[in-house]
């Protein structure tokens, strides 16, 4: 159990709903993989296409909706998307994602900080997606965001924790929760993030594009739990040379 943004959660695995082949997987992930937090995005409606149900209708009422501002290229657009999200979902959790570049989709920390300052004042629970930079993480903490979400690797790349040396100081130095977001491709990457001391991970592509997203969500759920348990009990130090596990005396003399 851990408390974040005014909610007490059992699962430290947050899941993004982009690229899912079928939205009915959301409730399956909620009930079977115990995922409690789901992200969604805001887009314009195509006026000539047949209108399918909104993703919101597939999210169990007890689950937590985090509105993602993806698509925003500056702080003003992000704020607008957050406001639309609160209007439609009545959830005040917002993931601030602002990108100017479409090749790497790296977050713009400067615009993100500006958006967060305003959204915190407007009473949102703000979860900024950031480039792993300790200075900006501390500034965000100062202005009152709920958590910081530094990336592991570019979105959707499945490369895993590519910048451990940058993530560790953030985990060590900020008091608010740290959620590792983006680029995590395998359950072992998620376990590694949790062993480092992350409070949660947010996974989208690695689950949504798996052959069976529910099975992959289950795998991630176990990995997150395993990594967290190991972190809580304390990881052991590494040695240069072998440290025998069986006694080194009283051998049989054959």
């Amino acid at each position: 159990m851990f408390t974040i943004g005014g909610k007490t959660l059992k699962s430290r695995l947050f899941v993004g709903t982009g690229k899912l082949p079928d939205y009915t997987l959301i409730s399956k992930m909620y009930y079977e993989a115990k995922v409690e937090v789901f992200t969604v995005a805001v887009r314009r409606i195509g006026l000539n296409t047949k209108h399918e149900k909104s993703v919101l209708e597939f999210i169990p009422k007890e689950a937590v909706i985090m509105v993602n501002t993806s698509g925003a290229t500056n702080y003003k657009e992000a704020i607008k998307i957050a406001q639309i999200g609160r209007e439609l979902t009545s959830s005040d959790w917002v993931k601030v994602e602002i990108e100017k570049d479409t090749k790497y989709l790296f977050p713009d920390n400067y615009e993100t900080l500006k958006a967060c300052e305003i959204l915190v004042k407007e009473g949102f629970k703000v979860f900024p997606y950031i480039y792993p930079d300790l200075t900006i993480a501390k500034e965000l903490e100062q202005i009152g965001v709920t958590a910081v979400m530094p990336l592991a690797a570019p979105i959707g790349t499945n490369k895993g924790i590519g910048c451990e040396v940058l993530l560790k100081p953030i985990i060590a130095e900020v008091e608010i929760p740290v959620i590792i977001d983006a680029g995590i491709g395998r359950p072992s990457h998620a376990a590694q993030a949790m062993e480092l001391g992350a409070d949660a991970v947010l996974i989208n592509t690695a689950i949504a594009t798996a052959k069976d997203p529910l099975v992959m969500a289950l795998a991630f759920s176990k990995a997150v739990e395993a990594g967290r348990l190991a972190y809580e009990i304390g990881l052991l130090k590494e040695y240069e040379y072998a440290q025998a596990s069986s006694p080194l005396d009283d051998f049989i003399k054959g």
Binding site: T39, R43, R44, L47, I84
Partner: peptide
């Protein structure tokens, strides 16, 4: 006028 809705997103 812009009409928007929710879609799956990360």
């Amino acid at each position: 006028v812009e009409i928007v809705s929710f879609v799956g997103g990360g």
